[in-house]
Amino acid sequence: MDFVLGHYNYWIAIFLMMVGFYTVISRGNLVKKIVGLNVFQVSVFLLYISIGTVTGGAAPIITQGIKLYSNPLPHVLILTAIVVGVATTALGLALVVRIKEAYGTIEEDEIHEQDHSL
């Protein structure tokens, strides 16, 4: 039971990662692919933060009388990753908008059909 509780966070993170991965590789709609990519991304954040958590630890802001803190390093890495993530998501969405304007659709299969019929 302790083993399951101790690894529950990692397993859910992996489950979310796989759900995101599945959305990316199996769905043809480009917006849905990007949502899937974002789900994948959040799962990586969860994995990092889970690894940095210390039971009984406080948030890593130095306070008098507190000795045990959670690991600040994953927090730094993930904080910047989130903001970079939204910037790259915006780039992906901008590409989707341009694809819609060029092909008139955001379904991958229809885009392939148009490419082949040329």
Binding site: V42, I49, G52, V54, G57, H75, I82, V83
Partner: peptide, 26 residues
């Protein structure tokens, strides 16, 4: 999980800006 700075960023970016951008795209 004690990651207050990360939570802050995720709430503002993920639930805020990302969602607005995706709505704009659709």
């Amino acid at each position: 999980m004690d990651a207050v700075d990360v939570a802050f960023t995720e709430a503002a970016v993920g639930a805020g800006i990302s969602t607005v951008l995706m709505l704009a795209t659709i």
